[in-house]
Simulated scan of single mutants.
Amino acid sequence: MSGQLVAFFVLSLLSIGGAVFMISFTRVVHMVVALAFTFLSIAGLYILLEAEFVGMVQVLVYSGAISILMLFGIMLTRHDAEETDVKKGPHQFITFAAIVVFFGIVFFGIQHTQWPNQGPDFSSQNNVKEIGIQMYSHYVIPFELVSVLLLVALVGAIILAKKEEPEE
């Protein structure tokens, strides 16, 4: 059992655990922390796959920026003092059974798939340099339009969050 396999299983369990905690917590701040934890473990999986650029972008954009943006959104909006309780009922058993069936189907599919013995060798290529050349030579306009779109969305979110309710 290699160290890479152990790291894969640990990061996979952390990623799945963070996602499960994110949907099972009732407080929004705890959900954001669990989501950031999931994002960080996914970045670790990208680094294990030798996609260092994508892993670092995952850390910077999702783990950093999106999590901070969600926390600001929580702070800028109003919340009731009482947290709503999740009603438990027979639908939880059905959901759990559906998850087990889905896991079984995916596990069976993975076990019976013919995987190639050797993957492509990316170690001789400089992925970051190639991404930069493609992005700044062929995709400059879409890159800048996405940045403007994100800026407009941020300003709109601030305006909506600060909008005062009419007094009664």
Rank of each mutant, 00 (worst) to 15 (best):
V152Y: 00
L14K: 02
I141S: 06
A157E: 00
F143M: 10
K163E: 07
I110Y: 08
K87Q: 15
M70A: 04
D80F: 01
F21M: 13
A7F: 02
Q4A: 02
G89C: 01
H30R: 11
I74E: 00
E50N: 13
T95C: 09
P120W: 13
L71N: 02
E165T: 12
H138D: 15
V146A: 07
L35T: 04
L60M: 11
L35Q: 03
Q58R: 03
I16V: 08
L69G: 03
I74N: 05
H30S: 15
G132P: 06
E164A: 13
A97R: 09
N126K: 04
V152I: 07
L76T: 05
M70D: 03
A161R: 02
H138N: 11
M1T: 07
M75K: 08
T95D: 11
V61D: 00
D121W: 12
L60D: 07
S24F: 07
Y62G: 00
F102G: 11
S15R: 00
K163L: 08
E168R: 13
L69V: 12
V28W: 10
F122C: 08
K87P: 15
V54Q: 05
V29P: 09
W115C: 10
L13A: 13
K163M: 06
A97H: 10
I110P: 02
A157Y: 02
D121M: 04
F102R: 13
T38N: 09
F37P: 01
I74D: 00
